[in-house]
Design a protein around this nucleic acid. Structure first.
Lengths: 110, 110
DNA sequence: TATACTCAGTTACATTAAGTAACTAAATGA
DNA sequence: TCATTTAGTTACTTAATGTAACTGAGTATA
């Protein structure tokens, strides 16, 4: 009895990937960065309703996961650019599939 | 000036897809249902830490999106099965890509 | 030389979502 | 009879998000 009570039968790496991607805003931030390195305000403006507070939290998390890198250009004033690592760019095919699904199955808004 | 202030340049259907998939638990519930129709408690047991409360909320949302269907078998006692619609099964390639990414880029837990 | 504005955030506070645990009601099993 | 299963719901707590104002360094404008 109860052979599936206390532990998941799912692959922990798969679960981890889903956990990363399904945190609010994470996917959209990564998708936005797929178009190239960007500064904090650029990402912020590209994603309406995303607050600077959450953006800075997410960027830190994504940096820790090795998906995003933060590069400081010591100009004056200092310029900070966020971009995807190889690991981050490797997420692209997921977004391609999401794009396919959405254009096939979601209604076109009027 | 300010050409990207007040509206997103992202495709609204793509954004909607991300919104659906990145709601907590939604992806894992859909993934779980990819293995076939299942009853409420089966899904609940397969996904530890997912409470019955959130599961019932998510299943209703997914039903409204046309991703999941709820079928009542009028046996005694009544049996209720949740399964994916065509729209729901069409999400499979996304999970395939997530699986590929996770096995290539995430560390194997010890 | 004030004044305002930009950038890259942070802080305080309010609202919403999620987690926890107990409960329901009908049916079944020991 | 008492416990258990199923498919949830309800009440309450805790965690995550949203909102808005604020910093502090640098730059541009009047």
């Amino acid at each position: 009895m109860d052979q599936c009570q206390s532990q998941s039968q799912m692959c922990p790496r798969f679960e981890k990937a889903v956990e990363i991607l399904s945190k609010r805003w994470t996917s959209l931030i990564v998708f936005q960065l797929l178009s190239g390195p960007q500064r904090f305000v650029q990402i912020d403006h590209a994603l309406p309703n995303l607050s600077g507070k959450v953006l800075s939290e997410r960027l830190k998390e994504l940096e820790q996961e090795g998906i995003v890198k933060r590069v400081v250009f010591p100009e004056s004033p200092v310029r900070i650019e966020y971009s995807l690592t190889d690991k981050g760019r490797a997420l692209a095919p997921i977004f391609v599939e999401i794009g396919k699904w959405s254009s096939e199955w979601l209604p076109v808004p009027e």
